[in-house]
């Protein structure tokens, strides 16, 4: 399978990655080869196989409904580039 430059641009946009124009053919080539590798799985006979949601043969354990996390805002916000009035500030996003 070969990915077009347009598909590469769209994937990059979904991943919020900025690509230089000269990088597009590079990614087109390497991503296409990864697809080829994964594509080999298509040849496996899976008609009789039940889809697997998780490789571990276990079921989800549940947590009791208790509020156990204390407020550590100050600690966490030391890690943030910009905060104000307890709010995290990020570059403006508006739809």
């Amino acid at each position: 399978m070969s990915l077009s430059p347009k598909q590469i641009e769209s994937i990059a946009h979904l991943a919020r990655l900025e690509l230089k124009p000269e990088e597009i053919p590079v990614y087109a080539d390497s991503l296409s080869r990864i697809f080829g590798l994964v594509g080999e799985l298509d040849r496996a006979q899976t008609a009789q196989v039940e889809p697997m949601a998780h490789p571990l043969e276990q079921v989800q354990r549940l947590r009791a409904d208790e509020a156990t996390s204390p407020n550590q805002r100050e600690l966490y916000q030391r890690n943030a580039p910009q905060v104000e009035g307890g709010l995290y500030l990020v570059p403006k996003v508006i739809e």
């Binding site: 947590r63 208790e66 156990t68 996390s69």
Partner: peptide
């Protein structure tokens, strides 16, 4: 009382980001 995947409380109207772990 707590969030779906964490132990943070869910009370409405708390100070911003005091209930986010």
């Amino acid at each position: 009382k707590s969030k779906i995947f964490s132990g943070s409380p869910t009370a409405y109207g708390a100070e911003p980001n005091t209930q986010a772990d």
